[in-house]
Design a protein around this nucleic acid. Structure first.
Lengths: 116, 116
DNA sequence: CTGTATCCACCTTGATACTG
DNA sequence: CAGTATCAAGGTGGATACAG
């Protein structure tokens, strides 16, 4: 019963915490964006090119969302014409571990499912 | 340049693999469902009670999705009235690691953001 | 108990054109 | 280059009633 209580408590905590995380990562594009930015900072147009299928509108929207959620930092460079750099914050960086685990699972899953 | 190629390749792989995973986990409720089932198999009504906010329709739909994706197994028990057990498959079990990482991140994020 | 059927409001996304 | 505005379409999720 002690074990049962602990299980229940732990379960509830995980559910809520995972939900918090997914709330911040909602939508189709946030994980791909973070995955790209895990390796280096990028400009808007670089992201647009490297994330296949995303539209400019969605990229803008997602980037704005993530900036508000403190996942990434936006920097306007005074080049001519101006360019904008996006990079992960510490919060964003720390998501890398979770995303890697998802990717590891996804890789194995795809492989085994397709071998069916 | 070699490093650059590797970075690019690894990045692409991670994006695709994470996308595969998120494809299977799409929607609002799959992660909570898996989190609950991580600890023990559950019946439909137990899931309905323990996952706060989910409707019966969505629970049915998500469970069906996940069964098709081989994430969980559905077993009809010949009780009176009949009950149905859901449990994770091996694929589903292996997602636990990734979800735990998400939860760890979510916990820290919530804590630090609220401390703002 | 374990679902399904229907209806509906909302949200997300995409295409396209446009701005500074 | 880095976005914004507008419109349209489809998907998502909730309420309710019903079925086996």
């Amino acid at each position: 019963m002690e074990a049962n209580l602990n299980e229940k408590a732990e379960c509830t905590v995980i559910i809520r915490a995972a939900h918090d995380a997914m709330d911040v990562l909602n939508g189709k594009w946030k994980i791909p964006i973070i995955a790209v930015l895990c390796f280096s900072k990028k400009r808007y147009s670089e992201l647009l090119n490297e994330i296949k299928g995303i539209s400019g509108k969605m990229l803008s929207k997602e980037l704005k969302d993530m900036e508000l959620n403190l996942l990434l930092k936006r920097t306007v460079l005074s080049t001519q014409p101006i360019t904008v750099q996006y990079e992960l914050t510490e919060y964003g960086e720390r998501l890398k571990v979770a995303i890697e685990q998802l990717a590891i699972w996804g890789t194995a899953y795809r492989k085994e499912i397709s071998a069916k």
